[in-house]
Design a protein around this nucleic acid. Sequence first.
DNA 1: TCAAATTCGGATAAAGTTGTCCTATATCCG
DNA 2: CGGATATAGGACAACTTTATCCGAATTTGA
Lengths: 153, 153
Amino acid sequence: MFSQTTQYAIRAVVILAYHRDSGPAGNLLLAEKAKIPPSYLAKVLQGLVKSGIVESRRGAKGGFSLLRDPEEITLLDVVNAVEPIPRIKGCPLGLKSHADMLCPVHARIDEAMAQVEAVLSSATIAELLSDPKRPPALVESWGRLKELQERSR
Amino acid sequence: MFSQTTQYAIRAVVILAYHRDSGPAGNLLLAEKAKIPPSYLAKVLQGLVKSGIVESRRGAKGGFSLLRDPEEITLLDVVNAVEPIPRIKGCPLGLKSHADMLCPVHARIDEAMAQVEAVLSSATIAELLSDPKRPPALVESWGRLKELQERSR
DNA sequence: TCAAATTCGGATAAAGTTGTCCTATATCCG
DNA sequence: CGGATATAGGACAACTTTATCCGAATTTGA
């Protein structure tokens, strides 16, 4: 349902949020932490840079970092940056009399997409990192999380 | 979000529902009405047959028909028949401590999938064909709908 | 200014999805 | 039976997505 690329983008942004205070994170480190093939992650990150979610710096001590605070980024922002949720505006079949009001079939499909948008927009990246009722986002345990953050300094 | 194949399957089932009382509908007629490349529709229909949504009859006077009444088929049935909504059961990254309870990232994504299932399961094919507040499903006007149904007798 | 580190961008490859076509097989009906 | 009609299924082609690799460009720091 969500493409591989979209899932990679989400994971990359989450790991970047963990590294928020440690300066830019390199492609290789991110790839390991987010469990993404490094050479492909490079492409995904380029997309996030173009979309204005992530910032890149070349050269020694370079890497990638979030352009905004994790509190200000929702899952929907990330998803829409790499592959927008396809909301149905006009009739996909080009039926003229459906231009203003979709038929029940397309209306339902669009309703499903609207629900996806609603769920994704209701969670900021920051919230995903600090939910005490669940295991930590994308890492094995709260203990390992500390290691992860130490290592990058 | 929904693959081309999935969208074709939905349209094919809807048109089949229109033809419910006219005996089996041939691949070519369906393709025209549902605006699907005929040679590819053949494949999609084979899938629906294997999944138990559609029944086929070979030879003269043959074609495809719904196995159940449109009242008994939901959009979710059709979608799941060709490409199931990917609910997240265990941790996709294989993190052991996330086996019982997903982390916030995967929990949100799964919540979005759950919402899609909810929307799709709340509409039967029959309901899609008889919504008086909207244009008729997949056809230009209620007038043209009559033509469509006459033609096939 | 030079060497090391690191992203950028393009070429290419592998795999999956979408679409076409042809032959085999089944069914109807005279 | 035999001819006409239709689906079944497999081979194949085109396109997209996913993934790899490499040289060019940029930045840091000695």
